[in-house]
Computed example of a mutant assay.
Amino acid sequence: MHPTLSKVEQPTIVLIHGFLSSTFSFRRLIPLLVQNYNVIAIDFPPFGKSNKSRRFVYTYQNIASNIIELLEHHHIKKPILVGHSMGGQLCLHIIKQRPKLISKAILLCSSAYLERPKQSIRFSTYLPFFSLYLKHWLSKQGVKSNLLNVVYDPSMIDDEMMLGYEEPFTNKRIFPGLTRLIRHRESDLSPKDVQEIDTECLLIWGKQDRVVPVSIGKRLNKDLKNSKLIILEHTGHLLPEERPEEIYTYINQFVNPSRVVEE
């Protein structure tokens, strides 16, 4: 049994949420992780409590560059990235830009291989009231409908969960930011880009993921030369909410397989 590490000695885990989400999505995972790691959870623009500048360029590359600057500003060396959905794609962009900065990466139902939005959609974001249309469309969809699409077991959805995922959208400034994200977002990394990544990656997927199907996880596992894929049964897209204990266990085993972690 290894002695408990001091907080200074503990590895740092950086949590990066997905599209239309925030650090709230890690609420069940963070209390587990802080037992053995320093944890940084990031709301990237325009989501959560991040700034929602009308001048920010909302590309994967730029968002990834901002996260890199944050890590370097705080002298975070060799962090372990954990990215869910779009956050996984941002992890890959960070690694692509600064491969020596990152120790390892855990990709939870990571988005990948998406093309850039169609030109007609990008052009429509310049219409004066597009952000209002976006707000209306998201309101019409409703938070419960969106949550039903991302979890396997609908009984886990309660009032606290719905309020937590809805809260960031009470800030009306998010909608111009979303408009710019749709306008600016480039294609995901190409297969060639992914194949050039050497960083050790753990891929965890829900078998019943309806947002980013497990076939994407299998393709990523094939393209990432130093990766392992774990598929969880009876699990949807929202892994940090649905399976926090299993993810915590897999992270421990992946980060330091030789270390016995005290539960």
Rank of each mutant, 00 (worst) to 15 (best):
K228W: 02
H184K: 03
E200R: 13
H136L: 02
V211M: 01
L107P: 00
P176G: 00
R243Y: 09
Y126H: 14
M162V: 04
F175P: 11
D209F: 02
E242G: 05
Y113H: 08
L147M: 15
S190N: 11
E196L: 10
S103D: 15
Q208W: 07
K135F: 05
I121S: 10
G177D: 13
R122D: 00
R185L: 11
D223G: 03
K140E: 05
P168A: 07
L178V: 03
A112W: 09
P176I: 00
Q119P: 00
D158Q: 14
P176H: 02
S131T: 14
L238W: 15
K225G: 04
S120W: 13
T170P: 00
L127R: 03
N221Q: 14
V194C: 12
K225H: 10
I102G: 09
H237D: 00
Q195Y: 13
E233S: 05
Y152I: 03
K225C: 12
Q119S: 12
K218T: 01
L178H: 07
P168M: 06
S215L: 03
P213Y: 11
K192F: 11
A105M: 04
E241Q: 15
M162E: 03
P240C: 09
P244S: 08
S111M: 15
S227P: 08
R243V: 08
V212T: 12
C201A: 04
S120I: 12
V214G: 10
